[in-house]
Design a protein around this nucleic acid. Structure first.
Lengths: 146, 146
DNA sequence: CAAATATAATTGATATATCAATAATATTCA
DNA sequence: TGAATATTATTGATATATCAATTATATTTG
């Protein structure tokens, strides 16, 4: 390579580093509190909670995952009794997904830990900084999906 | 859950969304230009290029990956003739990793595409915004690893 | 209506993420 | 020195990421 660039200086390297450190931290906190699902599973459950009628394809879009990943995640969550999967009343290609009571309680119990994780991760960062940070994130997203 | 929160408003949701959209965009650009390695493999190769003597554990730390992942990635890259793995001269637990000429050329050829990807992803974002964005990323990293 | 097309979900293959256990070798220190 | 400990890397198991192919069902359209 003709020119040298320092990894530390590459923005997307720092972006990866931050999100990974947050994910690890958040997951460890969950384990520490005795919760047995992954952050990704939490996100999927929350999405089903918010929109029980969604197709799996819609869920995939909402949580930025591949259809295949969602199929497999739903499988595991159905096995684990977190998601109840019924045939869709009018479209036989689909399923109707909803949370079990177990899952609703789980989400409820996890909420404080999740919020606390976010608070710790954003410690000493001002509201103003966070707002601008969020704006740049959205700009990057738009640039990459345009 | 007692309170509703909108996924869009959750900072770490947007963070995931941005980094994933960038990764997908960047990978697609590579494929489009005919390059056959993944972004992650590129990062590992670049790390070996910068520090040929590094242990796999050090590489793992540098690129924020698990030791196990690095072992498997190195395996594939050795098979693909991108990395040359020799016994370490004094420590028989280690290997000495270095890039093949093929890999050096590959990195060289990829450089322009990679830089272009970053440029597009950061389009219409000012230097000032990027600087502050980078600072917040580092703060989050510090908060999560403290 | 029937054929073409689109949509929803699954499955297979390969790469990566993570944790735990193991093997080989080095280092430390009693 | 020799036993305990630490380090380096591998391997196994399970979850997720991604692409491609497939199946089943719906929708569109000639």
């Amino acid at each position: 390579m003709s020119e040298q660039e320092n990894l530390e200086d590459i923005l997307f390297y720092s972006l990866e580093r931050s999100i990974k450190s947050y994910r690890q931290f958040a997951q460890q906190q969950l384990v520490k509190k005795g919760f047995e699902i992954t952050i990704d599973q939490w996100l999927l459950l929350k999405t089903v909670y918010d929109n029980p009628g969604q197709t799996q394809n819609q869920i995939a879009q909402t949580i930025f995952k591949d259809f295949a990943s969602v199929t497999r995640m739903v499988e595991l969550l159905v096995e684990g009794k977190y998601i109840i999967r019924n045939p869709h009343p009018t479209d036989r290609r689909r399923f109707h997904l909803k949370l079990s009571e177990l899952a609703v309680n789980l989400l409820d119990n996890m909420q404080l830990v999740i919020e606390n994780n976010r608070r710790i991760a954003l410690n000493n960062i001002s509201k103003q900084q966070i707002l601008q940070f969020h704006q740049v994130l959205d700009l990057i997203y738009n640039n990459c999906t345009a």
